[in-house]
Design a protein around this nucleic acid. Structure first.
Length: 131
RNA sequence: AAGCUGUGUCAGACGAUCGCGCGGUAUGGCGCCGAAAGGUAUUACCGUGAGGAAAGUCCGGGCAUCACAGGGCAGGAUAACGGAUAACGUCCGCCGAGGGUGACCUCCGGGAAAGUGCAACAGAGAUAUACCGCUUCAAGCGCCUCCGAUUUUAUUCGGAGCGCGCUGAGGUGUCCUCAGAUCGCUUUGCGGUCUGGGGUUCACGAAGCAAGGGUGGAAAGGCGAGGUAAGAGCUCACCGGCACUGAUGGCAACAUCAUGCAAAUGUAAACCCUAUCCGAUGCAACACCGUGUGAAAGAAGGGCUGCCCGUCCGCCCCGCAAGGGGAUUUCCGAGGUGGCAAAGAGCUGUGCGGCAACGCAUACGCCAAGACAGAUGACCGUCGUUGACAGAACCCGGCUUACGACACGGCCCGGCG
RNA sequence: GGAGAAGUACUCAAGCCGGUGAAGAGGCGCCCCUGCUAAGGGUGUAGGGUGGGAAACUGCCGCGAGAGUUCGAAUCUCUCCUUCUCCG
């Protein structure tokens, strides 16, 4: 388990209202601190401290098949970021798709997500530290 | 070959890497989150993992709850006929009507001789009429013919005619023309939209008739002959229509033939009538757990949740009383678990029955998605390149809508034999 | 997921138990008022497509879309599309 899915609607609206924002051509990213991070860490059997992530795809983008596909690509991009970058934990992250994201590949989404996460101070590249 | 038409099948495949949901086995944990109920990893392996429409939510069921055998009213649905089905507004067959050269397709396709309503405008008249018209009779006028009188004749007067033609004022419409208002411009005249005046033409006595005229979606069937004062299904032939008439064929709708009839505008996707069917609410139902020392009603009522009847439950106990106790009913309740997935109105093959929908029998045949921010993706290679519409949410049967490719049958046209 | 409601001109809308021309208001144009503007008053066009005409004017289509019933549909019936509301 690499993240908890964010379910509560009030947390989504709180993230939109109070969170730090970074937007690109395909996605928008909102980040705010998770006040329940300590309790969730204790609840986790492995005592890991992980993020809560929400993926948002508006109905405007298309029918259910298209929306599901976009959501999968966003999730794939987050997995890749978790593996390759040095991520901070105990955050609430909301990743929202824009209409341009319907017809692009994973690499393009990932590049934008990486840039946004670094800009917001959530992640830093591992490779640069090693070099 | 092109076009059209009907039916059926598939829904890209294989391989490599990374990754996801669920189930099982092993591993691991016995902690943590929560008031409680309850929830929970990690890793490895194995199995499994969206559709023909999963969609629209338009019908029909299953299932669940409402204490419920039943009856009536209201309300709703369906509508040729026969079958299929758990059921249906679905499917099959068939009948009738309509469309197409044809294969074939389409039809909310009962009743307007039970009743009510509606049918604008136009038109003389809209479910019954008589404006024009045609014919007869009568009045007046004119003409014609005949007779009589007068007169030399012409002429004049009177009478007669199943003889011929015409019809005063007022009001209405048509056409022409004039004036005014207003608008436009190719601006001092034309055109458009209105209002008013004048002139011209035609018709208006009674009875009969409904052929002809034009209006309209619709004017008491069409056409020809006879018939008549003029006419008319008034009569007849042919065609058409109707029938709770008969015969034949068909289970039936119906078809054909015979016989009879002249009452018959359209509209029931207007009310309505007839026949058949339907309790309501939907998995956000509902059950259980948990939580509140919850709230309300309270000896009246409650209840299938539109109404009425029936049925059922309750209307109790202590006490002289005040009062107390218990029963009953209703409502709220964050959250969790179940409902929920595996197997049934299932699929496939074969045999039999049936025109078919489908049914019966059989195989030691096949089948295991299931969440709760909601699981199938990314990238690379090969197959010649590209894959349309599109994501299960309690479960089934249909319908409708969206849409790619392929196969098979058939029709039409042209050519050849 | 389920249950409903509505769609008429640029906007708000009436008409929706069928009948000639689809009300009305705002907005918009013009005039008056003012040195100018706003406000106010008066007045006019009422929107779109297409055909005739020089223009005034006028024919046809058009009430979310498409079929059907009817002589005739904004209105009745069916199927789609869009928007909104409620249940949690």
């Amino acid at each position: 388990m690499k993240y908890y899915t964010l379910k509560e609607n009030h947390l989504f609206s709180k993230a939109y209202r109070n969170g730090q924002y970074s937007g690109g051509k395909y996605i928008s990213v909102y980040v705010m601190p998770d006040y329940h991070a300590a309790r969730l860490q204790r609840a986790n059997p492995l005592k890991l401290r992980i993020n809560r992530v929400g993926f948002t795809v508006a109905k405007k983008l298309g029918v259910a098949v298209v929306r599901n596909r976009v959501k999968r690509i966003l999730r794939e991009a987050y997995y890749k970021a978790w593996k390759t970058l040095d991520m901070k934990t105990g955050k609430i992250i909301v990743i929202a798709a824009r209409s341009a994201a319907v017809s692009v590949k994973t690499d393009d989404i990932y590049k934008e997500l990486e840039a946004a996460l670094i800009q917001l101070g959530v992640a830093s590249a591992k490779e640069t530290e090693n070099e």
